[in-house]
Amino acid sequence: MALNNLLKEKEAVILKRWFDAILETYAPETANQLRQVHDPFANPASQSIRQCIEGIFRKITGQIFTEKDSLSLENMLKLRAIQDITPSQAVSFVFFLKMIIRDELKNEAYSAALYNKLLSLESEIDETALLCFDLYVKHRQKIYELKSEEIKRAAFMLLRKSNQQPCSMEER
């Protein structure tokens, strides 16, 4: 069977294991909450994780990766970028998928073709991890920007008076 079909068949199991593996990185009380509450507004972190891993799964199995998927990937990395974790922990969740897929496919009869496909799939996962790292860094950077922009906004009138900003509306 082609690798993508195999994976699609196991999609639900893989996603569940992946989700659980991510929850393991949280405190047990928090993991429980994330598992149980499905309301996307009452528990937005849970939704972010779910949507993000579904999107990545679609991406690496050659399905359509929509704009919404890309947004949920961004959201997940925004969340990781401000959580109290190291950069490696922030993107580690992508690598969990590799282990899970290896494990799920361990009983499959490996043809050379399937094995090669698996290798390229793993490269794709690595690439996704790199993309996630880029996003992580971008959002870390953003935090610093927010700080300096906020100072400028708070001192808007002072900057105007000291001619650092266009002084009157007509000049703007």
Binding site: P40, F41, P44, A45, Q47, N75, K78, L79, I82, Q83, I143, L146, K147, E150, I151
Partner: peptide, 21 residues
């Protein structure tokens, strides 16, 4: 404050999530 910006972004996440919707 400025120095706790990350914390502010964490705390504002549920509000922002509803705005995104």
């Amino acid at each position: 404050a400025g120095e706790n910006m990350e914390q502010r972004m964490r705390g504002g996440f549920p509000r922002a999530n509803a705005v995104q919707y």
